[in-house]
């Protein structure tokens, strides 16, 4: 289920310790700190490996997360907004990561642009409560989803490259 490359990525992401959700007041702050530490380390790893692919930030309470992720295909960068809520039952249940702008464009999504994680990710998450955090959800959930779906959506012409700087247009 998990290949060598993923295993290597995983080994570089700090695991979490505190089993606490957003209803656990003090303990949640502790968990949130661990989440941020783990995410910061993961993003740093990605940058070092020249594989930087997302940014995330949260509201003050750490219950709502938003940011960007991008995927490089044929040397072109496709960027998407990411958002999700931390469910009350977190970390027993994984967050439902959504890419709202792709809602309705692929069937591998639930309403509101929530990506389909049931097969490749959720059982893995279930076995690793509470050690897995948001960084793992990104690495094992969203990452593989983008790698499979984005090239497919591009080949079908459902998403097209949007130029950021006009001079790049050919």
């Amino acid at each position: 289920m998990v290949d060598e490359g993923t295993r290597k990525t995983l080994s570089g992401i700090p695991l979490l310790q505190t089993k606490a959700g957003p209803r656990d007041k003090e303990l949640w702050i502790q968990r949130l700190k661990e989440e941020y530490q783990s995410l910061i380390k993961y993003v740093q790893n990605n940058k070092e490996a020249d594989n930087d692919w997302f940014r995330l930030e949260s509201n003050k309470e750490g219950t709502r997360w938003f940011g960007k992720c991008w995927y490089i295909h044929d040397l072109l960068k496709y960027e998407f907004e990411v958002e999700f809520d931390i469910p009350v039952t977190y970390p027993h249940t994984a967050p439902e990561i959504a890419l709202p702008e792709l809602d309705g464009k692929t069937a591998k999504m639930y309403r509101g642009g929530k990506i389909c994680l049931s097969d490749h990710f959720k059982p893995l998450w279930g076995r690793n409560v509470p050690k897995f955090g948001l960084s793992h959800a990104m690495a094992l959930g969203l990452g593989p989803w983008l790698a499979v779906e984005v090239p497919d959506l591009i080949s079908k012409g459902i998403i097209t490259y949007k130029e950021k700087e006009p001079e790049k247009a050919t």
């Binding site: 695991l15 949130l32 661990e34 941020y36 783990s38 910061i40 993003v43």
Partner: peptide, 30 residues
């Protein structure tokens, strides 16, 4: 699916949130 046995393993690579660290600093750093 099967659940792993609940062994208490504190792996060295885990994000140990030292109490001295401020959440706001982490948010800013991110």
């Amino acid at each position: 699916y099967a659940l792993p046995r609940q062994d208490v393993d504190v792996s060295p690579g885990s994000a140990s949130a030292a109490d001295g660290i401020n959440l706001d600093d982490l948010m800013a750093q991110m």
